[in-house]
Amino acid sequence: MADTTQPACLLTLPTELRNAIYLYLFDFPPTSPLPSFPPQPDALALALRFDTTTPYLHTNTNTPSTLPLRLLQTCRQIHAEAHLLALSLTTFHLPTSTSHPETFRLRSQPLSAAKLGAIKRLTLTARISHLRALNESWAGLPFGHAGLDLESLTIIPRRPDCSTTAYAEVADLSQSHTLAYIFAETFKGLRKIRTVEVRNKGCFNDVVWRILYRGLVFRLWKWGGEECGVRFECSGDGEDERDAWFRVYLGDGEDRVGRGNEVGVEVRRLAGGEMPEPGTTAAGFGP
Rank of each mutant, 00 (worst) to 15 (best):
L67T: 11
L87T: 01
Q40Y: 12
E136I: 12
L44A: 02
T91P: 02
P41I: 08
T59Q: 00
L46Q: 15
L72Q: 04
R70P: 10
T98L: 15
L116R: 04
C75R: 06
T125G: 11
Q77N: 11
P55G: 06
R121L: 12
H93R: 13
R127C: 12
I78T: 08
H130F: 14
S97N: 10
L87Y: 02
E102W: 08
P64H: 12
F92I: 03
L69K: 00
L124G: 06
F50G: 02
P110A: 01
Y56F: 14
H83I: 01
T52A: 13
T63V: 13
L44V: 00
H58D: 12
H58G: 06
S97F: 07
K120V: 00
N62K: 13
L69Q: 01
T90W: 03
K120L: 00
L71H: 02
P38T: 08
A139V: 15
A86Q: 05
L67N: 12
L48V: 07
S137K: 08
N62M: 08
F104L: 04
H58L: 15
L48W: 04
R107A: 13
S112Y: 01
L69H: 00
R70M: 10
K115Q: 10
N60S: 14
L89H: 09
F50Q: 11
K120C: 00
S108K: 04
T53Y: 13
S99K: 10
P64G: 05
A126L: 10
A82G: 05
L106W: 10
R70D: 01
H79F: 15
P95T: 03
L84F: 00
A86G: 06
D51C: 10
L85C: 03
L111Q: 02
A133F: 15
T54F: 07
S112P: 10
Q73E: 06
R121W: 09
R76S: 11
T123L: 04
T103N: 14
H83E: 05
A43D: 05
T103G: 09
S97W: 14
S88Y: 01
N60Y: 09
E136F: 13
R49N: 09
R127H: 15
T53G: 11
P38Y: 05
T53I: 06
S99E: 11
P110V: 04
T61G: 12
R70G: 09
S108D: 01
T54N: 15
T61L: 13
T63E: 13
L69S: 03
F104T: 02
F104M: 02
T59S: 12
S99L: 08
T54S: 14
A47S: 12
H93N: 13
A47D: 15
R76D: 10
R76V: 12
L124P: 03
F104N: 01
A126N: 06
T98Q: 09
A45K: 09
T53H: 15
T125R: 10
T103R: 11
T53E: 12
A82R: 02
L111F: 05
N135R: 09
T96M: 13
R132Y: 14
P68S: 07
H58E: 11
R76P: 09
R132N: 15
H58Y: 11
N60T: 13
R105A: 15
L57P: 04
P39Y: 08
A47L: 15
T63F: 13
C75V: 05
R107M: 11
T59C: 06
L116P: 00
L89Y: 05
L131G: 00
P95L: 04
L84C: 02
S65H: 06
T66H: 02
P110K: 00
C75E: 12
E81N: 07
S108H: 02
I78C: 04
A113E: 05
F37D: 03
